[in-house]
Amino acid sequence: MQTRTHPLLVAFSVLVFFFLLSPLVIIVGSALSDTSYLTFPPQGLTLHWFQNIFEISAFRRTMITSFTLAVGGTALSMLIGIPAAYALARYRVEVPRFMGNVFVLPILIPEIVLGFSLMKSLATGMGLPITLSLLVGHALLVLPYCVRVVGASLNNFDFSIEEAAVSLGCTRTKAFFVAVLPNIQAGIIAGFILAFITSLNDVSVSIFLTGPGVSTLPIQLLAHMEQFFDPTIASVSVLLMFVTVAVMAIVERTLGLTFLTK
């Protein structure tokens, strides 16, 4: 197989991967630098900047908000997304075409337009508290991931297993929990974790919905960057990269990372 690829193309791809990965290496390096400004290669090594993250209360606070929001928003989205994905897969023939398309809308509408519209209608119009607006915004943002990844698992599921459970005396609800759910577990975990990281990294929706006292980590990072240019930002970035690694490990163990190429 290897012989079919021209060496020049291989060399080009090596450069592309260098281009993709070196900026991330630079962040790791500058997070460890013993200087009060960002520099690479690091001059002297220190973990001081990592300690600094937890000393800055704004980072501590927004980190907790972001994680809670990502878990809460994704959980809410899964709770309503799994039944929807089930309906789409199980009743494929009866369900009108547009229903599937509705769940693509949060991807189709530019995130920043969604953020702005939610700010006008929910936060200002209905006077919802910031945390609740953020929760709704993030649940919407990740709903397509939940419905699609769980849907992909359901499309591989043989519904005759469920029918068998029903004909053996299970109620419909019980059949779902004993026959369907265990078989789509991998899809649910992978969908959850992909939705989680999407929510955790979100800027465009959150930037309109954060307000006095309540902010998320990426928004706090943006604000911090405009004032200070010290290695603390790099060390927060490294922490976020650890989260990415954990997410990748979980996706690899459930659906496999090649799922992302489909």
Binding site: F17, L20, L21, P23, L24, I26, I27, I197, L200, N201, V203, P218, L221, L222, M225, I233, A234, S237, L240, M241, T244, V245, V247, M248, L257, T258, L260, T261
Partner: peptide, 18 residues
């Protein structure tokens, strides 16, 4: 594929910051 997924799943703020 891992090398391509890693930057993709890293946040836009982190990647722009680089």
């Amino acid at each position: 594929i891992i090398a391509a997924v890693f930057p993709l799943l890293t946040g836009v703020v982190v990647r722009s910051f680089a």
